[in-house]
C-alpha cells in the first residue's frame, strides 16, 4: 500500500535525524553520558593565565583527565584563580603536584598540564594546587632576552 511506504520513509527520515544528532553528540563533540556527576573540583592560582580559556583541557602525562570550568581573579592575592574539574577516577593526586599552563604547538591552544608531586596526602574536592607555573608570555620572554643581552654588553664594557 502506498500509505505504508510513505510512513516507512518518514520513519526512516526521523530516525536518521535523531541518529545524526546522537553522532554529533557522542562522536563529534565527545560528550560522554553522565559525565556531569563523577568529577571533582580543585583550584589553582596562577600569576598570569594569559590566553587560557574555559573548557581548555587538563592533562597529566599527556592524557586528558579534566577541563577548566571557570577562571576568575582572586581579589586578595591578585592572582588568577582557575577552577579545574577532574575525573573522579584520578583521585590520587598528591597535594604538592604542579600545575602549569602549556601551549599545544607554537600557536596552538593553551591547556593545563599537571605533573605529579611526592607527598603522601592527596588532593580532595575543593583543594588547591599551590605549586603553579604561569603561562609563557612571549612579550616577557623577549623583554628578558633583551635585558640579558644589554646586561651582557654592559658587563663586557
Amino acid at each position: 500500500m502506498q500509505n505504508r511506504t510513505l510512513e516507512i520513509g518518514v520513519g526512516l527520515f526521523l530516525l536518521a535525524g535523531l541518529l545524526a544528532l546522537l553522532l554529533l553528540a557522542l562522536r563529534v563533540s565527545g560528550l560522554t553520558v553522565g559525565s556531569a556527576n563523577d568529577t571533582y573540583k580543585i583550584y589553582a592560582h596562577f600569576e598570569n593565565i594569559a590566553g587560557l580559556t574555559v573548557r581548555a583541557k587538563v592533562t597529566m602525562a599527556g592524557v586528558t583527565i579534566g577541563k577548566v570550568t571557570a577562571i576568575d581573579l582572586d581579589r586578595d592575592s591578585y592572582t588568577g584563580r582557575v577552577t579545574l574539574s577532574l575525573d573522579d577516577s584520578v583521585d590520587n593526586l598528591p597535594v604538592d603536584s604542579t600545575a602549569s599552563i602549556l601551549t599545544a604547538g607554537l600557536l596552538g591552544e593553551k591547556y593545563i598540564g599537571i605533573s605529579v608531586g611526592g607527598d603522601e596526602e592527596v588532593l580532595v574536592d575543593g583543594g588547591t594546587i599551590h605549586d603553579t607555573q604561569s603561562s609563557l608570555v612571549l612579550e616577557d620572554l623577549i623583554g628578558k632576552f633583551l635585558l640579558n643581552s644589554v646586561n651582557k654588553d654592559e658587563a663586557k664594557q
Binding site: L21, L24, A25, R27, V28, S29, G30, K57, T64, E109
Partner: peptide
Amino acid sequence: FWANMQNSVSFREDV
C-alpha cells in the same frame, strides 16, 4: 583528527 575535533567541539555551544 577525531581527538582534536572532540576537544574543541562543545555539545551545548556548537551542536
